[in-house]
Structures are given as structure tokens and as C-alpha cells.
């Protein structure tokens, strides 16, 4: 059947979100952010090896509001990626495909990522 000019039925515009699809796209976006962040961290390490003025500059950045936000956000994005990756590893081994189980692990991932991020932050500030 020739139907080149027929319209395309709506997809993203109408499809409702599930926990699984939401986590899947978040996993991707967060993965890209993390890779960029890792590159930044590498530069940070190189700068540190170049001497004290660089250290002071970085210190100044990290103590600004934006710097703090950056650190807290990264604690979360790495936590999320690690937890969701564990989910993916279980899937690759063939476990956790049951609809209920995948929803539960999804919710655990969401809450777990925030808890882990807070723990990393507190640990970093020597509070625990």
C-alpha cells in the first residue's frame, strides 16, 4: 500500500509515562551528565597537580552557591546511575522482569538515590 503522505499517528505526545520508562530516559540523561562530570573531575585533578593558585580557585568555586549545587547534584546523579545500573545488571541476568517487581525496584531506585546522595553529602562533610 502506498501511503507516503498519510499522517503519522501521535506517539510521545500522547503516551502516558510509567515508572520504568521514566527511569529509563532519566538513566540516559544522567549518564551523559555523569560522563561530562567525570571529564571535569579529571581536569580538576590535573589543575591540582599544577599548584596552589589553581587549588584556591577551585576551592572558591566549590564554596559558592553554584559550586555546592553542582556537588550535591552530582552526588545524586552518580547515586541514581549506580542504583539503576544494578537494576540493569539484574535484568541482564534474567531477573526482575515481573511487572510488580520492576515497579518496586524502580521506586527503590528513586528513593534510594536520594538517600544515597544525602549519605554521600553527609559523609563528605564529616558529619557521619
Amino acid at each position: 500500500m502506498e501511503n507516503k503522505n498519510n499522517p503519522l499517528s501521535p506517539h510521545l505526545q500522547i503516551y502516558s509515562w510509567h515508572i520504568s520508562s521514566l527511569l529509563s530516559i532519566t538513566h540516559r540523561i544522567v549518564g551523559v551528565i555523569n560522563i561530562v562530570a567525570i571529564i571535569f573531575i579529571c581536569f580538576w585533578a590535573i589543575l591540582l597537580s599544577l599548584g596552589e593558585p589553581n587549588y584556591e580557585f577551585i576551592q572558591m568555586f566549590l564554596q559558592s552557591f553554584f559550586g555546592k549545587f553542582f556537588i550535591v547534584f552530582l552526588s545524586w546523579s552518580f547515586s541514581f546511575h549506580i542504583l539503576n545500573e544494578i537494576r540493569h545488571l539484574a535484568w541482564d541476568m534474567g531477573y526482575g522482569f515481573d511487572l510488580k517487581i520492576s515497579q518496586i525496584t524502580g521506586i527503590i531506585t528513586i528513593f534510594g538515590s536520594f538517600i544515597l546522595a544525602i549519605l554521600i553529602y553527609l559523609f563528605g562533610r564529616n558529619i557521619i
Partner: peptide
Amino acid sequence: HTIMNCTNSCPKGLNPAKAIA
């Protein structure tokens, strides 16, 4: 990529995501 929309929508309650895995 294990988005699981397939399993979520299957009207027969099957699990295509598991089959692919």
C-alpha cells in the same frame, strides 16, 4: 533498552521484555 513499555501495555499479560532478555 529495557524501557518496559511493552510489558506494561500487553493486554494478554505477557512479558516481551523478558523474552528479549
